[in-house]
């Protein structure tokens, strides 16, 4: 029997993604982004995102099918992000997926966006390791998850107690006068001769006392404030702000905490694999630091290529494919969009 052909739809934030996979083979990953429409607001405007999803949906489905060289009628199942995410945005994707499933008389799988960020790695590196820690870092979340079998569920180990890592990048970028989204710009500024040791910014939740209660949790709000205060003080004194150095020092603080806790989580579980996903996984310093520290601890790091780390339809299709392959029953046609879908729920059944 040939591997299942899955079409996946992702609309949890500002990217309209339609991906097509056969088994673990990526056939198409079409994306339409409304990020530019949000840039002037410095963040994602939910109604703007929802409107853009409606307009982009059919063209993106068409583009994905053309790239994959398939007809919609060839599809064996439709997968869609049913949560978590922006409620109105999710709903456009869920309704579109139902329109497809209903028309094609094929099953629908409403899946968890976070689990999809983990499953996408199968498209690049094959089967997931039997036991790994997944660190998902982006503008919306910073989570450490223990994953034994992605089709059965994930166990949350820790997450941010305030800002997400990507959010901290956005806010610090604004302080430094860099564009939105901040991640790539801070990374670039840091690489352009930034001195990582120029300032030592605080590492949230790493003190002995904090570790007792928040061993695997993150906090980036204090770091963001520390950077803002430091920059303000310089400006008040009429001094130039060394943007590249500040960017590098800030990035160093974020990556230090992320990788330290991720490795600690692997050791705690006795897992020999660390998987990194989400938009911040594209950060060059994070990748290097994770590789170095993991190697020292005898842990292998898996990071999908940047295009698969950010939100996309392929990751949803990838998770759908794993669920179909493991024989999971599909979701009902009255599947809701669940903006606060718990991470422990991989499939909305």
């Amino acid at each position: 029997m040939s591997e299942p052909l899955i079409l996946g739809i992702e609309t949890s934030c500002d990217e309209t993604g339609v991906g097509i996979v056969r088994g673990q083979t990526l056939l198409a990953d079409a994306i339409a982004s409304s990020v530019e429409e949000h840039a002037r607001f410095g963040g994602v405007v939910p109604e703007v995102a929802s409107r853009a999803h409606l307009e982009a949906m059919v063209p993106t489905i068409r583009r994905a099918c053309e790239t994959a060289g398939i007809k919609p009628t060839d599809v064996d199942a439709v997968a869609v992000t049913s949560g978590p995410g922006l409620a109105g945005a999710l709903l456009v994707g869920v309704a579109a997926a139902k329109g497809l499933a209903l028309s094609l008389d094929k099953p629908i799988y409403g899946v968890n966006h976070l689990a999809a960020h983990v499953a996408v790695d199968t498209l690049e590196h094959g089967d997931l390791p039997k036991g790994c820690v997944a660190m998902l870092v982006s503008g919306g979340h910073s989570s450490l998850l223990a994953v034994e079998d992605i089709t059965e569920g994930v166990v949350p180990m820790g997450s941010t107690i305030d800002d997400a890592a990507g959010e901290a990048f956005d806010k610090v970028a604004r302080v430094l006068g860099l564009p939105f989204p901040g991640g790539p710009w801070i990374d670039k500024a840091a690489r352009d001769g930034g001195d990582r040791m120029y300032v030592t910014f605080p590492r949230g939740l790493t003190s002995q006392r904090d570790l007792e209660r928040h061993r695997f949790d993150f906090s980036f709000s204090g770091l963001k404030t520390a950077v803002a205060r430091w920059v303000e003080a310089k400006r008040r004194d009429g001094e130039d702000v060394p943007v590249n150095h500040v960017a590098a020092a800030f990035q160093e603080a974020v990556c230090d905490v992320l990788t330290r806790k991720a490795i600690d989580a692997c050791k705690d579980r006795g897992f020999e694999h660390l998987l990194i996903g989400g938009g911040v996984a594209a950060n060059s310093r994070l990748r290097v630091m994770a590789e170095e520290r993991a190697a020292a601890a005898g842990i292998a790091v898996r990071v999908p290529r940047p295009g698969l780390c950010t939100d996309n339809g392929a990751m949803v299709a990838a998770l759908g494919s794993e669920l179909v392959r493991s024989g999971k029953a599909p979701s009902p046609l009255d599947l809701p969009a669940d903006s606060s879908m718990p991470v422990t729920e991989v499939l909305n059944a």
């Binding site: 929802s50 999803h53 409620a87 329109g99 028309s103």
Partner: peptide, 19 residues
């Protein structure tokens, strides 16, 4: 109301597309 309205429109458009 936009949220409900879009459910109908995206359903109609995707069904129309694949059928």
């Amino acid at each position: 109301p936009f949220t409900g309205l879009r459910v109908g429109l995206v359903t109609a458009r995707t069904m129309g597309e694949v059928l």
